[in-house]
């Protein structure tokens, strides 16, 4: 995973609330065994019609969306299924951050572990971004700030560990592996090791 420090990009706006991971990547695209290549199926049933043709009015399909790295989404983004294929599809497509008033729990964790920055900002700042699709904004992961089209900025929270994961590109697996001694101590002191023979 590559470190993410600062993202400067035009936005794409998908204002609907409660966008679930079945929309981000429909289940029929989960039959693979690899993490890559899922960008082609991102929002498959919204991007394409029944005949497989691109819908020109879908925000990701508009010419100005080309190359955008920041998705501005509605509230409770990424709800539903725990499929990590959702952030895999978003990053494979080229997104580096999702900006929303609220992001669903499992998706948020999955995003961080894949270098996709979950940016939760207050509703008024979010409304400003929704009303200005294609705005050039900057997300500063270290500072926890997003620049707004009106020249102001909005703050977003990240747990210290999540921020460090994003900034260093080192995930929780390394941290856990380094705690092997403590895990072993805990395991040996466990008095209800029901799974042991």
């Amino acid at each position: 995973m590559d470190p993410v420090v600062r993202i400067a990009s035009r936005t794409v706006v998908l204002p609907a609330d409660n966008v679930d991971t079945d929309q981000i990547i429909p289940a029929r695209f989960l039959t693979g065994t690899r993490r890559d290549g899922l960008g082609a199926s991102l929002f498959a049933d919204w991007r394409r019609d029944g005949a497989g043709e691109l819908r020109p009015d879908f925000p990701l399909n508009r010419p100005e969306a080309e190359g955008s790295r920041i998705l501005v989404a509605g509230a409770n983004f990424g709800c539903g299924s725990s499929r990590e294929h959702a952030p895999w599809a978003l990053t494979d497509y080229g997104f580096a951050a999702v900006v929303s008033p609220s992001i669903a729990d499992i998706f948020k964790g999955n995003a961080v572990r894949n270098g996709l920055v979950p940016v939760e900002i207050e509703p008024s700042a979010h409304r400003q971004l929704v009303s200005r699709p294609g705005a050039e904004i900057v997300i500063d992961v270290q500072a926890g700030s997003v620049s707004l089209p009106d020249g102001g900025s909005a703050r977003f929270e990240l747990a210290p560990f999540a921020r460090r994961c994003l900034l260093t590109g080192r995930g929780p697996l390394d941290f856990l592996l380094e705690r092997e001694a403590a895990i072993l101590r805990y395991e040996q002191g466990k008095d209800d090791d029901a799974a042991a023979p």
Binding site: T33, A159, P160, L173, F175, L176
Partner: peptide
């Protein structure tokens, strides 16, 4: 197993881990 510290969340021990064919192949690959 390890309580939360100022710069990291708690390490929680998992008693039972259930896996299936759709969300595990990439984990084994890792």
């Amino acid at each position: 197993a390890v309580p939360a510290g100022p710069d990291h969340p708690a390490v929680i021990y998992v008693d039972t881990h259930l896996i299936h064919e759709v969300t595990s192949p990439q984990a084994f690959a890792l």
